[in-house]
Simulated assay, not measured.
Amino acid sequence: MAERHWRFDDEAALVAFARALAPALRAGGVVYLHGDLGAGKTTLARALIGALGVEGRVKSPTYSLIESYRLPDLSIHHLDLYRIADPGELEWLALDELDRGGANLVLVEWPERGAGSLPRPNLVLHLAHAEPGRTLNAVASDSRAAAWLAAISE
Rank of each mutant, 00 (worst) to 15 (best):
R4H: 07
W6D: 06
E11V: 11
A13E: 15
A13L: 05
A13Q: 14
V15L: 10
V15D: 12
A16Q: 11
F17E: 03
F17H: 07
R19F: 07
A20V: 06
L21I: 06
P23H: 12
R26V: 04
R26S: 15
A27W: 07
G29M: 06
H34A: 11
G35T: 13
D36M: 07
D36F: 08
L37I: 13
G38V: 14
A39I: 07
G40N: 09
T42E: 08
L44A: 10
A47K: 01
G50Q: 15
L52P: 01
V54E: 03
V54L: 04
E55R: 12
R57I: 09
V58A: 07
S60G: 07
S60L: 03
S64W: 01
L65K: 08
Y69R: 01
Y69H: 09
Y69K: 00
P72A: 11
P72L: 09
D73K: 13
L74I: 06
I76D: 00
I76R: 00
H78N: 02
H78Y: 00
L81F: 11
L81C: 06
Y82Q: 02
Y82H: 07
I84T: 05
I84E: 05
A85F: 13
D86L: 08
L90Q: 04
E91G: 10
L93K: 05
L93V: 02
A94C: 09
A94E: 14
D96V: 12
R100Q: 15
A103M: 08
L107H: 01
V108G: 00
E109K: 00
P111E: 03
P111A: 06
E112N: 09
E112D: 12
R113V: 06
R113P: 05
L118V: 07
P119A: 03
P121L: 08
P121D: 07
N122C: 13
V124Y: 11
L125F: 05
E131S: 14
R134I: 05
T135Y: 12
L136V: 11
L136A: 02
A138K: 04
V139H: 13
A140Q: 04
A145H: 05
A146R: 04
A146N: 09
A146D: 06
A146S: 12
A147K: 13
A150K: 14
A150M: 14
A151F: 02
I152V: 15
S153F: 10
